[in-house]
Amino acid sequence: MTGPNDRIDEFELDALFEEARGESPTPSDDLVARIVQDAAQMQPKPASSEGHEPTGVFRQFLAAIGGWPALGGLATAAITGVYIGVAQPGLVGVTAAELEDLDYVSTEIWPSDDLFFEEG
């Protein structure tokens, strides 16, 4: 049986808690190393280090049409279109119906008013 003088009061208990607070263990270097190692293993990779090549509009376009060979074909077609537009060879403007009525067709690869060879 404990008497009134044997009881621990609130202040004495608080003093014990205070003492306990000051005597807490600190993480060892080994524990810290283990935690940081876990963190490195679990860390999501930054977006810039995932091995993606930079994607510009041109690169997307190139991929969409099928790469460099397709771009070569497209360039040839474009240049041909420009030439036809500028030079207007004789057959341009002749419809299929007109061709059916003709026995032969005479045309010039280079138009008579040749824009490319005239000077001035």
């Binding site: 807490s24 263990p25 600190t26 993480p27 524990l31 963190a39 490195a40 860390q43």
Partner: peptide, 27 residues
């Protein structure tokens, strides 16, 4: 920052949180 790939964030978080957690778990 850690979730976005920052290499130093985990060490700083460990230095802050582990010393608080260990005494509680030990007790």
């Amino acid at each position: 920052l850690y979730a976005n790939g920052d290499p130093g964030a985990a060490s700083e978080l460990t230095a802050r949180l582990a010393p608080r957690l260990l005494p509680f778990c030990n007790r």
